[in-house]
Write a protein that binds this DNA or RNA. Structure first.
Lengths: 207, 207
DNA sequence: CCTTGTGAAAACTTTCACAGCT
DNA sequence: AGCTGTGAAAGTTTTCACAAGG
């Protein structure tokens, strides 16, 4: 167990988890790989293979205990306890992310936001205080936070990212449409909205 | 030319294009695959292979004419002319996307937004009018639009997506954290923010 | 008899390495 | 001499198919 694990496998774990939580909500206790994946457009064999990287959690001939599998998946992803993250750049997109409700299902929470605009510093959005970017290091140490979201303009994203790393951030979710250059030990995920639209536009014309 | 083209290749085309536009801005006329990819954390051979699916655009011993390559990439992706898209769901995230400036560099433009909340209908955000969702079909036909962005809550995303398809939409960029089930001829790209954070959190713990 | 778990095969993507032009 | 373009090799991910177990 634990060879090399595809990144898409990890991404799908969250998708499975959300779906299992839904199945639980409608009262289901046991589900087969087929039932779990049918509405996700994923093959049952893909689901079973994904899980197999981490162990065996089902019963042959029966399926998976939903409650138990939820617990296992949360533990595997690392969200069995609430994960605190910060957000940097409280512009339009940043403010929207501060109010975004999609994190809580996966036990994630933005606990603090940062900006360098004096007009924004001190404000509170949805219970989340906006602080001066200079206080970042202190907050990260006190709250033991390692993950941050960047929603600043492209023009300052690289500089801000570097500052986050210097303050102790180890993983960055980047919403700025620019490639960040950071040390190899920092994990970066890029949500590149225009590029995703580009993929759609291409497919529409060519496939 | 035109075998089977990896989706990641398509996504990288947009990344190359943005970078080329930047290089052009600083006055560069010719660039090698190495110069183009160095700040993107992509191998030069990957760049050349990606282009090779579509033709040969460089000069051996020299490199690529930046102006010409920009034109070629825009044509390949399908954004040589301005591409109009709609947005459905003018909540926090939707409003932020309406004001998002990252589309214009890639010749994309949100030309109309839709919602079902009477309080929002008729308003104008950044020059984009918010219309009743019932007018969608008319707008799509008049403006010949095929691509839409969904930024409604998970609970209504499937229903709204179905409505968009019925109105003529062929490609959807989905921001709701739920898998959409639509006919196979509809192209869907999912921007799943909590799942991306999940990947980061996993990596931080395990790699 | 049903469904999991998993090696092995198939499919796909990236990297290599060098022939081919400028 | 230098950089592109590209088959071939290496590497990675998904799908298959079936043994194993309830």
């Amino acid at each position: 167990m634990r060879k090399y694990i595809p990144e898409d496998t990890i991404r799908r774990l969250s998708v499975y988890l959300r779906n299992l939580i839904n199945l639980k909500k409608i009262g289901k206790k046991i589900a087969s790989s087929k039932e779990i994946t049918i509405s996700l457009n994923i093959q049952p064999s893909q689901f079973r293979k994904d899980l197999s990287y981490f162990g065996s959690f089902g019963k042959r001939g029966v399926g998976y205990d939903i409650d138990k599998l939820i617990e296992h998946l949360e533990k595997i992803i690392g969200i069995n306890k609430k994960i605190k993250v910060i957000l940097v750049g409280v512009g339009r997109l940043g403010s929207a992310l501060l109010r975004y409700k999609g994190f809580s299902l996966l036990n994630m929470e933005i606990v603090c936001a940062f900006d360098n605009d004096p007009k924004k510093i001190g404000k509170v959005i949805d219970g989340i205080e906006i602080k001066d970017i200079k206080e970042m290091k202190k907050v990260l140490q006190k709250e033991k936070i390692k993950v941050g979201i960047i929603s600043v303009p492209s023009s300052s994203a690289q500089e801000v990212a570097q500052y986050m790393v210097n303050s102790g951030i180890k993983g960055i979710l980047n919403f700025a449409p620019i490639t960040l250059n950071l040390p190899k030990n920092i994990f970066i995920k890029h949500v590149d909205i225009p590029s995703e639209l580009g993929v759609l536009i291409f497919k529409l014309e060519n496939l």
